[in-house]
Nucleic acid binder design. Structure first.
Length: 430
DNA sequence: TCTGGGGTCCTAGGACCC
DNA sequence: TCTGGGGTCCTAGGACCC
């Protein structure tokens, strides 16, 4: 636990919408939403859309009228675009300090403790300006001695126009910080979800400030160790560790809601094989091998008789081979699948990883390295071809068997930054 | 007709051992 | 027969995040 830290949270405003607007400046000032796969529900809203009362996760079919009435502009999520924009911002921040933690696609923490910045608010405004000029994304910045307070500050900076997008708690007198905590409802505190909110309310806790003054012992009883840590964090004492860039994933998942409900085995096989290949690719990129792969099938959550099935495969020899994983999962799918069911969603989940490097040294002798090397070489060629000639140039046969499971994406914006054919065209005037 | 996808951490409880 | 305490490891499930 360290309390002399200075942490900044850089949080992109309405990130997915802001990304779309970079290439569609005509959408400035208009209500815009980005929809999840299958164009099912809203996962990002512009301020104008929020003002129309469209909540996060709003099912599109329920809001069709609002969309039409107010001419809301809709996009299918374009994650290649968002990922690329995110990397550009991370690059700018990394140039400021290597002490950076990528928390999510639209949020980064910076550890400023060693930088001795005289005026943190002015510093924040300069960073904001740089990101705006170089990438075109508006950000909010919160600065404090703990992540939870930095988060709270950035939320405030986002909402309160007079702050100019930046709020620093460093050097602020305690009563002033308490005022900000009082403005945050308990349910909006980072780490308090919809389950805990009503419980905490029964103890009379309505705001972040109330929680800050709450008994740590009682909080631990109610919420586990996280409750005690949360109170310390709200008091400016840093409990959450700072994860530098380079940390590796502990699990990798690929899941999809199908474009339409299906029961045919061969269609689901195609989906599972495809998920396995994608997950394996990500696993290889992280330089790891897996010992455990699972798959699941579910019916629709919103229909009566909702059911889910899972099946797990454990590997004697850790692997990152697309073929091995796809074959094993498709085989266990065969045992799980029953044609009387109408499946709505499926997924593949890899876990229990081991580092490639570590495999060479630790497990020498226990594992057939020859097997491992052959698979490694095959996968290297596989990845190299797809890198060079484009994703999907070569695939496994099982992936291609059927398309019916693939989600619908009718409103996706072009791949402006990842496909030559979609490059925006700039016309000059003479 | 129509409601996303990808993660992390913590905890309780079972299996197993001495 | 059916009785004890203590420890570790593993896993499923809960809660949270964006």
């Amino acid at each position: 636990m360290k309390s002399n830290r200075i942490l900044a949270l850089i949080d992109c405003n309405n990130f997915f919408v802001s990304c779309e607007r970079v290439f569609r400046p005509d959408l400035e000032g208009r209500p815009v939403v980005v929809l999840s796969s299958n164009d099912g529900c809203a996962v990002a809203r512009s301020n104008e859309a929020k003002a129309l009362g469209i909540p996060m996760g709003a099912p599109a079919f329920k809001y069709r009228q609002v969309f039409e009435e107010h001419k809301v502009v809709k996009f299918s999520a374009n994650f290649e675009l968002y990922g690329d924009m995110s990397r550009r911002i991370v690059q700018i921040l990394t140039d400021i300090t290597p002490r950076i933690e990528i928390y999510s696609i639209d949020e980064c923490f910076l550890d400023l403790s060693e930088l001795s910045i005289a005026d943190l608010t002015a510093w924040g405004k300069a960073v904001r300006q740089t990101v705006w000029e170089q990438v075109g994304i508006p950000v909010s910045i919160g600065i404090a001695t703990s992540k939870t307070l930095a988060k709270l500050a950035s939320e405030r900076a986002k909402k309160d126009q007079s702050l100019g997008g930046v709020l620093s708690f460093i050097g602020l007198p305690e009563p002033a910080i308490s005022q900000y905590r009082q403005q945050l409802p308990i349910g909006d505190v980072w780490g308090v979800g919809w389950r805990m909110t009503p419980k905490l309310r029964t103890y009379g806790l309505e705001t972040a400030e109330d929680l800050r003054r709450f008994s740590p012992q009682l909080a631990q009883q109610l919420m586990g160790i996280r409750g005690r840590q949360l109170i310390a964090e709200l008091n400016g004492i840093s409990c959450h560790s700072f994860e530098q860039i380079g940390r590796k994933a502990k699990s990798i998942a690929r899941t999809r809601t199908f474009g339409e409900d299906v029961s045919d085995l061969y269609i689901i096989e195609s989906a599972i094989a495809s998920f396995a290949v994608q997950a394996a690719f990500k696993l290889r990129k992280s330089g790891q091998l897996t010992r455990r792969a699972a798959l699941f099938l579910t019916t629709s959550r919103f229909k009566p008789g909702y059911k889910s099935w899972t099946s797990e495969v454990v590997f004697e020899q850790p692997t990152a081979d697309s073929g091995t994983l796809a074959a094993a999962l498709v085989q266990s799918l065969g045992k799980l699948h029953n044609p009387i069911n109408l499946y709505h969603r499926a997924g593949v989940w890899l876990s229990d990883f081991i580092d490639e490097q570590q495999l060479q040294t630790d497990l020498l002798g226990h594992i057939s390295l020859d097997f491992h090397h052959k698979s490694g070489q095959r996968m290297q060629s596989f990845d190299a071809i797809n890198r060079r000639y484009g994703r999907g140039t070569i695939t496994f046969a099982a992936e291609k068997l059927a398309k019916r499971w693939q989600p619908k994406q009718q409103l996706r914006s072009p791949h402006y930054v990842s496909d030559w054919a979609d490059l925006p065209i700039v016309r000059g005037r003479r």
